[in-house]
Each structure stands twice: as structure tokens, then as C-alpha cells.
Amino acid sequence: MTEARPTVEVVRRSGRSRGRRGTGPGAGPGTGRLVATELLKITTGRWQFVGLCVALAVHVPLLLLWGAQAEPLVAWNSLRSRSGFLLAYAMMFFGVILVTGEYRYRTVTHTWLLTPRRSRVLGAQVLTVLAIGAALSTATFAAWWARGAARHGAPAMRADRPAELLSAYVIVVLMVCAAGVAGVGVGTLTRGSPAAAGAIALSGLAEAVLDGARFHGPATAPLGILLWPTSETHVSSLLAAISWAVVLTAAASASLHRDLPS
């Protein structure tokens, strides 16, 4: 850096508005502001944003090549898996990256200095993943539904049975969001993406081998819903996926007190 350095002068910004401070000790920023910060980090960090765009873009060739099933029933029954399966695991990975990126680049130091109550940061990350998961799953669900409706007509895609349609939509959103939140939890617990990926992979293998855990563990519970036809819902897998998201978030919250050494 060879640019000329101006005279250093520290000026106290005494006249400026101090803005909205926290209301209590260690209050820090509000949840809305923390979520906005997470979204700003995603859009300015480039790679996470590009990753999300890629996750969406992957659906385009699939939609074009396999979007129009010959049989109306097949189009309906594959709606849930086609709109949610890839996205659920993309969101799980995104949740991991959202958290572990902070540790990888050590920006978690700034984050915790700005918000000493670490659970609030975790809460904002969970809300961010929920918002993004809901938005993306809505987009993919709408796209796959529209493709089927264009080929076979809206009634074939249950437009005349809104409860059925809404149920399919909500389940996709729930699975995608639960997977994303589980990713945040695993990322917080492991503090590193390789460790998180390894933990998820190992868990998936163990769940696949063990009869009782298959489609009910944190890695395979979304499969228990999204691999099956839209007309079939395994409630136990649905509850397991949501429960794992809650349990992993609670475990992550409890682990936040760990030291952050240099």
C-alpha cells in the first residue's frame, strides 16, 4: 500500500445520534436487525448467495427434462419429492455453511463482540434459514406444480382440492426448513464444515443400517417424507425431522458457552 496517508485525527462523534441501543445489559441488537445482518452477510459474501442460486438453478434442467410426466397421477405423486428433495439437502448444507463460515473466517469474533448473547445470534441464524428455506421451497413447489398443471390441467394437480394441495406444500416447506435448521445445529456443534459433513454422513450411514433409525434420524428423516409419493405421508418421519431440528438447535444453544480461543 503506497497511497499517501492523511493526518491521523480521532474525532469524537459526540453530536451524532446514538441510534437505538439495547434496553438492558448486554441486550445488543434486536432479532430483526440480526436477521437483516445475516441476510446482508449472505448477499455480500458472494459464495453463499451463489450456492443458493445454484441450488435453485439445478431444478431448471430437471424441470425442463422431467417436469412433464405422461401420467397425471405420477406428476402429482412426484411433486413433493421433486420440489423438496434436492432443496432439503441443499438447505442442510447451507445451514452448515452459514454457521461454519463464521468460524472458518473467524468473523464469529466480530459477531459475538457485537452480540455477546450468543443464543440470539443462533436464533437469528435459524430464522434466516427458515425464511430462505420457506422462500426457496415455495418457489420450487410452485414451479413443479405449474409444470404439471400446464401439462395435465390444474385439477390433475389438485387445484380443486386446496386442502390436499396446501398439505403437500406445507410438508415440503417444513422438510426443507427442518433440514436447514438441523444444518445450523450441526454446524454450531462442530464449528467446522468438514466435521459437520462427516457427522451428517456418518449419521446417515448409521441410520441406513439400523432398522429403527432409518428415515427417523437427523440425516434420513427428510427422505422418509420426500422419497415417498405425495399421497403418502409417514407422520413419524415428519415428526422426527422436526424434532431433530429442535433437538439440534437446543444442543447447539447449550454448546455456545464454549470458549473461542485464538
Binding site: G24, T44, G45, W47, G101, T107, L113
Partner: peptide, 30 residues
């Protein structure tokens, strides 16, 4: 962590950490 506005009471540099893809301005915006 018990300070009313910790980051506005204390300015701290523990390590020069920043996301490498983020610009300096965007880092400060965050």
C-alpha cells in the same frame, strides 16, 4: 456481556478477520 451497549462502549480488534470475498466496505456494513 453485561454492558448496556458493549460494541459501542468497547471497540475491539482480536484478529483481523473478514470474509475474503466481501469488500472492505461491505465488511464494515455488516
Amino acid at each position: 456481556r453485561e454492558l448496556p451497549a458493549p460494541a459501542r462502549t468497547v471497540g475491539a480488534v482480536l484478529e483481523p478477520a473478514a470474509h475474503p470475498a466481501r469488500t472492505g466496505r461491505n465488511h464494515l456494513r455488516c
